[in-house]
Amino acid sequence: MLKDFIRSSRAKSPWIIHFDCGSCNGCDIETLACLTPLYDVERFGIVNVGNPKHADVLLVTGTVNHRNKHVLKNLYDQMPSPKAVVAIGACGLTGGVFREAYNVLGGVDKVLPVDVYVPGCPPKPEAIIDGVVLALKKFAEKQQAAG
């Protein structure tokens, strides 16, 4: 019974961790704006946390470069399974305008399996919330599969 309770609460009240890879801050501030009164994702039970071991969903903004890929991988590995990854913004998807720069590896999916892609430069907070809601659906499916 306790197991069922934890399972349903993880999907109904997901905790989110945000990591800025090599973003220009545009996507970061829009992600943060989702938490503030106008958009208020806390009404969905979503809480932003700083500790990867508490988190269910990882939001990644920006391009992956040679230095932060280790940090990103490390954060992902520390999160308990099942987990979902949302890549935010043109840079997180493919590298965006920076794709040809020498220190840029490309999108987040070069390092991690990505569940949801949110396009835009930067995406509007509404789009980010949409992406997180979609990630929760995938998260629930992963839980089902894990039993």
Partner: peptide, 25 residues
């Protein structure tokens, strides 16, 4: 160095008008 992209170098492949969009980012 966690956010270093090297976008000053992009001037070699983007012309001076296109660089406006790069420096905005």
């Amino acid at each position: 160095g966690y956010v270093h992209r090297g976008l000053e170098k992009l001037t070699e492949i983007r012309d001076f008008n296109q660089m406006v969009q790069i420096v905005e980012r």
